[in-house]
Each structure stands twice: as C-alpha cells, then as structure tokens.
Computed example of a mutant assay.
Amino acid sequence: MAGEDQTVLVRCADLAKFAVPASVAQRAGSVAAALETGQRVVELPRGVNGKGLATAVAYYQARAEAEAGGADAGQFDGEFVRGLTHDAAIDLIYAAHHLGDQALFNLFAGYRVNY
C-alpha cells in the first residue's frame, strides 16, 4: 500500500472511531508515535472526545486541500477558528493538547471564537 492509501483507526475514550489517512493522522504527535511502532489502531487519552477529534480531522483535511489549492495557510487557519462555536473550540483545544499537536493548539492565539 502507498502511504497515501494507508489509514489508521483512531478511537476516543467515548468510543467514537475515525478511519483517518495516515498522512493526516501523523500531524498529531501521539498518533504519529503509535504509527512508528506499527500500530494501526490508536487509543487516544481521555481528554479527547469524538467531537474534538472530528473537528481536528476536519481541520487537517480541509487545510491539506486548501494548501493543495494554493490558499494562504494563515488566512485559512483564521477563518477556520473564527467559524467555530465556543463548544467546538473548547473540544478542539482539548483534542489538540491531548493529541500532542502544538501547531493546532496554537491556532487559538490571537483569534476570537464565535460565542
């Protein structure tokens, strides 16, 4: 299988499961570490719920598409964060922290989230 075709099953403490392309999942430090050991099913820490992971995966995929289309990454990030509800932002912050994705966590510096 080519790297693009491989997926990893990511499972949250609330039992939500996501089949995520390995190339996308590797952005998260905790998932990347598991992939390096050959795991194809990754159990996430208790702080990551299905809603937060779904938002993180949506961000990863949308950003990859935006970058492939030549969009400005900083502008995309700002628009993404501003489009989140308060609850979605909190879930994503917890997910970013527990996934070990400092870049995703840092998205919230300087942006207002809709309440």
Score class of each variant (00 low, 15 high):
79 E>I: 00
80 F>D: 02
26 Q>I: 03
38 G>S: 09
109 A>R: 12
36 E>S: 09
101 D>S: 06
89 A>Q: 04
37 T>F: 15
65 E>N: 10
19 A>N: 14
102 Q>E: 15
6 Q>H: 02
26 Q>N: 01
11 R>Y: 03
99 L>R: 02
11 R>V: 15
27 R>P: 00
94 Y>K: 15
68 A>F: 00
101 D>F: 12
100 G>R: 11
13 A>E: 13
8 V>P: 10
94 Y>I: 00
30 S>R: 11
63 R>D: 00
21 P>M: 09
25 A>R: 04
61 Q>M: 09
96 A>N: 09
1 M>A: 13
112 R>D: 08
81 V>M: 11
2 A>S: 13
83 G>H: 04
83 G>V: 07
8 V>A: 09
106 N>R: 14
68 A>K: 15
107 L>S: 10
81 V>I: 11
101 D>R: 06
83 G>C: 04
107 L>N: 08
114 N>R: 14
91 D>H: 08
43 E>I: 09
54 A>L: 02
91 D>G: 03
23 S>L: 14
15 L>R: 14
113 V>I: 15
77 D>V: 05
43 E>L: 12
9 L>N: 11
72 D>W: 11
100 G>Y: 11
74 G>C: 04
93 I>Y: 12
94 Y>T: 02
61 Q>N: 12
67 E>V: 12
62 A>C: 02
27 R>L: 00
97 H>D: 15
6 Q>W: 04
9 L>A: 13
61 Q>E: 14
26 Q>Y: 01
2 A>F: 01
28 A>M: 04
23 S>Y: 08
